[in-house]
């Protein structure tokens, strides 16, 4: 069943595959992000309570959703790296972690900037904000552990274990607003019921979500290519690629 995947355990095959995806991902990411952000920031109607301030949602929500999404992807890569010991999966941990950390930081930062005018505070130690901050520390821990050992395989193993254990935090972030009372609002779109958002505001948000997904994938593709090349420098194909 998984036989078609086997060639990609080799660095070179993955490198070429990612190289084929990259231009498409980058192009569509730029296009959808531009459409989504311009629509959301300039043409979507203002909110009945928050006026124009709510527009930061078009950056805040996609960044927050994919900070958790990339973490899950990183944990899956860590599982594959630990159980099947495939080197490409180990490098994927290193490729994904900084992208996720930046998304988490963007979510926390835009949240603070949004919180000041609306709630009246930059930061409050409520369950949602605190668990998202822990996610940032988990990402930083994974990055630090990966580079903490002189032997890169040991580092990947240690980082993989932390990434796997930390996945427990992802459902906590999502359900924090239901399990405890918080200053942060409940879910607007990531729930099974109908989204609590007017269609004219929802469509640009969905486009932004798609744009952020494509952008995240493009960054990870590029970073993974770099990591593969860096780790396989001693091989002939990598030398040929560079010359």
């Amino acid at each position: 069943m998984w036989r078609w995947l086997h060639p990609y355990a080799k660095g070179e095959a993955s490198y070429r595959l990612l190289g084929r995806w990259l231009p498409w991902l980058t192009g569509s990411a730029v296009l959808t992000m531009m459409v989504g952000l311009i629509w959301g920031l300039f043409y979507a109607p203002p909110d009945y309570q928050q006026g124009d301030s709510y527009r930061i949602i078009y950056i805040h929500v996609p960044a927050a959703i994919f900070s958790m999404g990339t973490y899950t992807a990183m944990a899956i890569a860590a599982l594959i790296a630990l159980v099947w010991q495939i080197r490409t999966a180990e490098w994927a941990i290193a490729a994904i972690a900084p992208v996720g950390a930046v998304l988490t930081f963007i979510a926390l930062f835009t949240g603070a900037v949004w919180g000041k005018p609306m709630w009246g505070t930059w930061w409050e130690w409520d369950a949602r904000l605190t668990s998202q901050l822990i996610l940032l520390f988990l990402y930083l821990g994974v990055i630090a552990l990966y580079h903490a050992f002189s032997d890169s395989r040991t580092g990947a193993k240690a980082a993989g274990i932390l990434a796997l254990v930390g996945v427990v935090n992802v459902p906590i972030i999502h359900y924090s607003v239901y399990w405890w009372n918080t200053l942060h609002q409940g879910a607007t779109i990531t729930k099974f019921e109908k989204p609590s958002m007017a269609t004219s505001m929802l469509i640009p948000l969905l486009i932004c979500l798609l744009g952020f997904a494509l952008m995240t994938a493009a960054f990870i593709c590029q970073r993974l290519r770099n990591e593969i090349l860096r780790q396989e420098l001693h091989r002939d194909w990598a030398q040929q690629e560079l010359n």
Binding site: P45, D47, Q50, W119, G186, T188, S196, M197, A198
Partner: peptide, 25 residues
């Protein structure tokens, strides 16, 4: 501190659906 709920809608819709008079913050 002010809390807000998870609903987002344009002012006209809020007026029609909930009878809320829009207050521009």
């Amino acid at each position: 501190l002010a809390k807000h709920d998870e609903e987002y809608m344009p002012p006209e819709l809020a007026e029609a659906m909930k009878g809320i008079k829009h207050v521009n913050p």
